[in-house]
Every structure is written in structure tokens, then in C-alpha cells.
Design a binder for these strands. Sequence first.
DNA 1: AACTCAGTCAACCGCCCGCTC
DNA 2: GGAGCGGGCGGTTGACTGAGT
Length: 308
Amino acid sequence: MGKHSCCNQENVKRGLWSPEEDEKLIKYITAHGYGCWSEVPEKAGVFVACTRAPPSENCIYIYTEVTICIPGLQRCGKSCRLRWINYLRPDIRRGRFTPEEEQLIISLHEAVGNRWAHIASHLPGRTDNGIKNYWNSWIKKKIRKPSSPASTNMENPRTDHQHSQFFVDKFGQNHFLNQETLIPFHDPSFTFDINGIYNSHMDQIFLEHAGTLQNQIQAEEIFQPAGSFSDNMVPIDVQSCDNTNFFKAGEMAVDSLQRQEDSIWIDTHQYFSSSYFVWDQAGQLGGEEIFPTTSNMGTMLESSNEHE
DNA sequence: AACTCAGTCAACCGCCCGCTC
DNA sequence: GGAGCGGGCGGTTGACTGAGT
């Protein structure tokens, strides 16, 4: 049998994973789980940001949901699975193997041989790859030289950055994932606030693929929400911003909302590879039609402009 | 400082297996 | 039953690092 079909694609990236790739994968898996690995690379590029702007002199009551479709992971599903199982999974234990673990590995290996996955199933938090590497690099040697004293300081030569993963949750709080830290997600809704995004190194992704979001949303223009909206919704006064297309879109929405019944579509394709706003005067999402395809967004914008 | 070498481990490759159609 | 697909697994590679010279 040959390679997996997903691994035959020429645009599939190989080699070491970047922190941005890791973050995409962590956020996707945390929110959606990993039912079908082949779907992970594509779907890991879709993010949803929520904002709310309260009533003010320049700004009517607006609920904004921004769906940002940036390029997903340029990896095959198999590579994503491997990265998650062997490295990013939050319950992975890193660092030195304890003498008890070492003894268990030896006895299990005597019993079942090189069935690393089976051995790993008896050592919570340890991966088959990690045990296999440990066996090949250390235990073999130790068995070959039974007189050598058990050394503890050679078993974990790596620096801390390889034992923990930086992670920014949807509230913009920084976390390190290590053997003691579970991913601190508060609910599975997979909704990110703008503030959290632009404070995190998601910036790198936005700057690369979607324009300078940071320049469009200045820190002083984001203020704390008041009212019953959930914590992840950060209000933005769309009228107080620079004369960018981003906020021109906001002005258009405000103007249009005053004339039209419910909501308006704004194509921000210039800044986001495939993104749009849905602004609903009642603060509600507009139902199924709020998720247009990329192909019809332009049409919707054109028809919107024609109304002006 | 520059080079070599050994150890570590993340990631890939190829195969097997189970599931679905 | 068999072809296709995807997940899982073990073997292997090679990038990286640090110690030694």
C-alpha cells in the first residue's frame, strides 16, 4: 500500500511545526475534537471573533460576528494527528522517566517486545514515540552496561521551551501547557474575542494573511462591555476609528442599519482573505443566511452598494 | 572560536488493519 | 469480496543541541 492520499499533495508542508501551526491545531482540536483528521488541516483555518458595540452618540447597538477564514494548516491529517498525539496533547508528561516508569518499561518490553503503543498504555501521559525514543537512546545502553550507575541528570537535557507550549486562550490570557496544565478553555463554543486575538501571537497570522489588524483596532478604542453580554464579547466603537476600510465598513453598516430593516453584509475581503460582518440591530444573529459562501459575498456587497 | 561527535527526540515513511461502500 | 480510505503503529531519519577537543 502506498502513501495516504492526503500526503501526496504537493502543497503539504513537512518538517518542524511552527508555533502558529501549533496554535491553530490546539485551538481547533480543543474546540472540535479530532473525529476526522483529514478534515483538520482545512478547518483549522476558520476562526470566529465576536464584538459588541453599545449604543452611543456615534454608534448604535451592534452585535458583530467576524468569521475569519485564513489559510488552514498546510499539513496532511496524519501529520496533524502525530503532532497532537505526540506533542501537543495537554495530558502529555514530559521530562525524565522515573525509576518506577523505567522498571515498568523494561518489564513490559520483556513481556510484549516492541509494542510501544501497548507499553505506553500502561504509562499515563507517556507517548509511544517518547517511550520508543527513550528505549533506543537510554535503556538499551543501560542494559548493555548493567554496571553503570543509574544517572538521573542525563535523562532530561532539554530546555523548558520544549517541555511546555505557549497558549493564549479566548480571553487573551496566556497559559503554558505542560504535564500539569490542561487547556484552560471555559466552554467549547470556539469563539474568540478580538482583544484576545490581537494580543496574542495570532497577530503573526493576521499580519501575514489579513492585513494589519493591529493598526485597525487600536487598544484605546476597545473598551469594556457593560451589560449582560458574555465575557468573550468585547465592544468596539466603530465610529471612532481610523479611515480604514475596516471601519468604513462599520460606517456603512451604521448608515445602512438606519435605512434597512435588519442587517447588512459587509465584504471585508480586502483585509481578510475571506471574511464578513453581520450586524444585526437587535443584537441577534440573523439565522442561516449569516454564513454566505465566499462567492456570493461580493454579490451581496454589490447589491448593498446599489441601495445607497 | 571552530570543529567533531554523540545523544535526543520530533517527524516522516511504510505497512497493517478496520471500516465503508 | 474487494477496492478505497483513514487511523494506528513501529522503524527510521535527520535536525538540533551540548559536551569535548
